[in-house]
């Protein structure tokens, strides 16, 4: 999934620059949590933006399906109030329907904003907002480690699959542990490699930032104001 999401992030239609995107979503999320009107506006706008960005949006929507199904079921049958329907000992109340409704609206609205970010923004674009030097460097280095490790894990998985390593749960557990161990070994080889690669190029504590164009600021401000206006409707 990472692999494909990474390429989605590279190829999606972004409408605005990374800075504008990240700030728009980060500032909109609190408003979305607070106000119903803002939720409706945000849901509409971010769904459109996400759909425009990539068709992959529709698949992302399915990812939390189990979580939503389970939690909403609990909310629906648990919160007490005036009974409006019942199934054996399970009761649905006016209150539970109300909470479930408002939760789902908030959830989908926030999730659409979150998806727009996930579909369009690469991790380095996000990390570059972090100004704490050592943290930024650890994050960028670890992301690079993840890129390499996932590639290696993928080929190990294929190699195991080709030799029937995932047939049945027992074997699956064994093979997965084996791959985990390989990943562990490769990880620690990677430390040495990072150190050498850094040293070979005069490392003196600097990790340059990704170049990212600005742009789209006006659009971002307009979208934000639209969501903000929800508070006053």
């Amino acid at each position: 999934m990472t692999e494909s999401l990474e390429s989605v992030q590279m190829n999606s239609k972004k409408v605005m620059g990374p800075k504008a995107r990240v700030w728009l979503v980060l500032l909109s999320l609190p408003l979305i949590l607070l106000d119903t009107q803002s939720q409706l506006i945000a849901l509409t706008l971010f769904s459109l933006l996400s759909l425009h960005a990539s068709r992959y949006y529709l698949r992302l929507l399915l990812a939390p399906a189990v979580f939503i199904l389970f939690s909403t079921t609990v909310i629906l049958f648990t919160i007490e109030g005036k009974e409006i329907a019942s199934l054996y000992f399970l009761k649905i109340t006016d209150k539970s329907v109300e909470v479930a409704q408002s939760t789902l609206l908030r959830c989908f609205s926030a999730f659409s904003a979150f998806c727009y970010l996930v579909l369009t923004t690469t991790l380095p674009e996000f990390v570059n907002l972090i100004r704490v030097g050592f943290l930024r460097e650890i994050m960028l280095l670890s992301y690079r480690a993840i890129q390499v490790l996932l590639e290696e894990a993928e080929s190990l998985k294929i190699s195991a699959e080709a030799r029937l390593g995932f047939l049945g749960l027992r074997r699956w557990v064994k093979t997965t542990a084996l791959i985990g161990h390989m990943m562990f070994l490769r990880s620690f080889e990677r430390v040495e490699k990072f150190e050498m690669a850094k040293e070979a190029r005069c490392y003196s504590g600097i990790f340059p930032s990704a170049r990212s164009e600005g742009g789209g600021k006006i659009l971002a401000v307009m979208i934000f104001l639209a969501i903000f206006s929800g508070l006053f409707i």
Partner: peptide
């Protein structure tokens, strides 16, 4: 720094190994 970064990478990769069939989607 490199050690922590790689450990972080390892934790993530470990958590990204997907479980098949057992529990549905995610």
């Amino acid at each position: 720094k490199s050690l922590l970064a790689v450990s972080l990478g390892f934790i993530f990769v470990l958590s990204a190994l997907k479980l098949p069939s057992v529990t549905g989607s995610c």
